[in-house]
Structures are given as C-alpha cells and as structure tokens.
Design a protein around this nucleic acid. Structure first.
Length: 208
DNA sequence: GCGACAG
DNA sequence: ATCTTGTCGC
C-alpha cells in the first residue's frame, strides 16, 4: 500500500477547509472525532463523533489498523468534505512509510497530513530558519520536526497522501497559532474527549 | 539477545 | 491511548 501513496499536491482547489482527526478510547469502544475549520479564520465549521467497537490492538507500527475504522466512519458522517485532513499520527515518517495518515488518505482518496507528538523513526537534522529540521531515514527525507514554539519540543509533520511536504508544512503552520498542537487537532481531541466522557457516564449508569 | 516503540 | 498524582501558569 505504501507504493500507492502520492507525494504530489492533488488539492482540487486552494485549501479553504481543513479537518482535524483524532481517536479516543473507552473500555472496548473507539471514538472517532473530526473537526472542520475554515483555514483563514480557524473557526469551527462542522464537527462529528462516532463510536464503534474496537477490533484491533495497539501495536506501535500498525496503529492505522486500529484507528482507520473509527476514522473512516466519522469522515462519512460529514455533510461537507474538507480539502485536506490533518491526522493525529505519522504519515510516511514510518518504518514502512505507511503510517495512519497514509492509510486514511488512501482509503478516503483525499489529501492527508500526518502530525505526531513524538518521533517513531529517523534522525533529526539541523533546524533551519523556517523553524523546521528535516527527519532523515534510509537516506531520504521522510518529514520534518517543526518547532512551533521556541523552547518547546517539536511536532513531527509528514506526508499522508496526495500532498507535498512543502504544502503540508505550510498548512500545519497556518493552523498553529502560537500553540504546539494545530487547532484542528486540538479541537478534534477535545470533541473526542467530550464524547468519551458521555459514553463513560452512560456505561456507569447501565451497570447500576 | 536487549531495548524501543505514533496513539 | 488510559490512569494517577502533583505542579506550574494564565
């Protein structure tokens, strides 16, 4: 599947709507959450959550097989489709060059960007004046370590599908206003957490 | 053989 | 990711 990933910009138009996608968990349920923001204003346009049974364990390099089902489900619940999706997890910055963001992009047939909070593979090069350092593995640049706030640990940005690294960095930078985590992702995260609390409460009641 | 290991 | 305890900052 990694061979089917496109690193070219395939955006149907200028990016206007950006989505953030995250997944949270309860005892045996996966909660997919998506938030769509207007790129320029970074204002929330639409959001959804979905709850499905978890049916794959967490295995470090196989995260996508665990998170793709709830992610696809929640994307299908959208009224309007975003131009690009920022995914909570790596894209090609992955040992098989096929992280969660790639897997989701391939299935959706839509541009995706992987943004992770911790590195998985590769060695980080020198920070440039654009506030990012290339991450190299096997002699190739597989993404960047982007320093959003000086003195704060970087976020790791890589291509998911149908986008160039340059455009991916541009979009992520645009979504990060003085905060380490891009706003689409932090919003998706809080929405997932809210749904999770609701489900946990329902579970407590049903036990009684 | 041992340690590390996105979320 | 989740859970728990504790601290720092706006």
């Amino acid at each position: 599947m990694a061979r089917r990933i496109s690193q070219q910009d395939s955006l149907s138009r200028e990016v206007c709507y950006v989505a953030g996608l995250d997944v949270a968990y309860t005892k045996n349920k996966s909660i997919g959450a998506v938030a769509i923001l207007e790129l320029n204003s970074l204002s929330l346009v639409e959001s959804h959550t979905v709850c499905v049974k978890t049916r794959f364990p967490y295995i470090s390099t196989l995260l996508s097989f665990r998170e793709v089902p709830p992610a696809v489900s929640v994307m299908e619940a959208l009224d309007y489709q975003p131009d690009v999706v920022i995914v909570d997890g790596h894209g090609i910055m992955h040992p098989y060059r096929f992280g969660f963001a790639c897997h989701l992009g391939l299935i959706l047939g839509k541009p995706t960007i992987g943004v992770a909070k911790r590195p998985l593979v590769g060695k980080v090069g020198q920070l440039n004046d654009q506030n990012w350092a290339p991450v190299i593995d096997g002699g190739e640049v597989i993404g960047v370590a982007l320093t959003v706030v000086e003195g704060v640990k970087p976020i790791y940005v890589s291509i998911g599908h149908m986008i160039s690294l340059g455009k991916a960095i541009e979009v992520v930078k645009h979504c990060t206003s003085n905060h380490r985590i891009p706003k689409p992702l932090s919003l998706a995260h809080s929405i997932a957490k809210r749904a999770q609390r609701t489900i946990e409460e329902e579970r407590s009641v049903s036990i009684l």
